[in-house]
């Protein structure tokens, strides 16, 4: 379904994606890595939004040569949702429906699927974050594409919204869709992904499963550490070296830890004379359905 062959993308001197190759047939695949690891760039290259070296194929269709056709097979939810704010919800989805050559009935069905029907006359800028995300999901599902690509689909959502999105995606997966998503939340990955690609500085450093990444998946918690002084990327590197799954997003360091050893990263950091000011245990996504 999704096939990448030595995809390389440089922005000036920095190499954002450095010869990534992988092949994925069915089910959900997650991209895991800290900010700047190249997740977003890789996704954009896969969709042919950015010109890059190497080649990408979706359902066997070369993205660069026949980008239009390839993208018709992909529903995409971007990281930052940007709509024409003045537009009304109904107009927005109608526009995307016409872009994807999808009938009004299908648009209505997609809207109903995310239970946004009835809100057509609302202006997009007046929608809540969750509603916007659902709108994006509805747009991604227009025309029932076999592949759905999401770039941090839950980053702007509260726990309820996140739960809803994960739930929807899981049911899509059950319908047989191929899902590729980037995330920095272990719980999401555990509950959704069949396979995880760990990205670091534009390369795949591990190609594994959530269980391979976090052996005690049921016991995993995500904690957020707030440091004193030390730059977060440095601390993240130390923790990564110690085998923790780390994500740093500018407002604290998110670390996946076994449920009963929540303090372990703190002691690791202490050994490197990095002081932790505060610790937050992030609420849990229900992962009990992960295996179903």
């Amino acid at each position: 379904m999704i096939e990448a062959r030595s995809i390389t993308k440089r922005f000036g001197r920095t190499t954002a994606v450095d010869g990534i190759s992988f092949c994925h047939e069915r089910g959900a695949i997650a991209l895991w890595g800290s900010n700047g690891a190249g997740k977003t760039t890789l996704i954009r290259c896969l969709l042919g939004i950015l010109r890059c070296g190497g080649s990408a194929r979706i359902c066997g269709i070369d993205v660069r040569r026949r980008g239009r056709l390839a993208r018709a097979l992909v529903g995409y939810v971007p990281q930052e949702l940007a709509f024409h704010d003045d537009a009304r919800l109904g107009r927005a989805i109608a526009f995307f429906a016409s872009l994807r050559r999808v009938s009004h009935e299908d648009a209505a069905r997609a809207l109903a699927l995310v239970s946004l029907n009835g809100h057509e006359t609302k202006r997009v800028r007046d929608l809540s974050g969750g509603m916007k995300q659902r709108l994006a999901l509805a747009i991604a599902m227009l025309g029932d594409p076999p592949v759905i690509v999401l770039d941090e689909p839950t980053s702007n959502l509260d726990s309820e919204g996140r739960h809803e999105v994960v739930h929807t995606l899981r049911s899509l997966k059950q319908q047989g869709k191929t899902i590729l998503f980037a995330s920095h939340r272990p719980d999401e990955i555990i509950s959704l992904a069949d396979r995880v690609l760990v990205l670091e500085r534009g390369r795949i450093v591990r190609d594994t499963t959530p269980i391979g990444l976090w052996p005690h998946e049921r016991a995993v918690k995500t904690i957020r550490l707030h440091l004193v002084g030390t730059p977060e990327p440095e601390a993240a590197r130390i923790l990564l070296r110690e085998g923790f799954a780390v994500h740093c997003n500018g407002s604290g360091l998110c670390v996946a830890v076994p449920r009963d050893r929540k303090a372990s990263p703190i002691s690791v950091l202490a050994r490197h004379e990095i002081e932790v000011r505060d610790l937050e245990v992030l609420e849990e996504v229900d992962t009990s359905e992960a295996s179903s």
Binding site: G67, R68, A72, Y76, P78, E80, A82, F83, L99, R100
Partner: peptide
């Protein structure tokens, strides 16, 4: 600048179109 371009380009439409 608004980010909508990215979204549009992810749709089945070429840049020239």
């Amino acid at each position: 600048e608004r980010g909508t371009l990215l979204y549009l380009l992810a749709q089945p439409i070429s840049r020239v179109e």
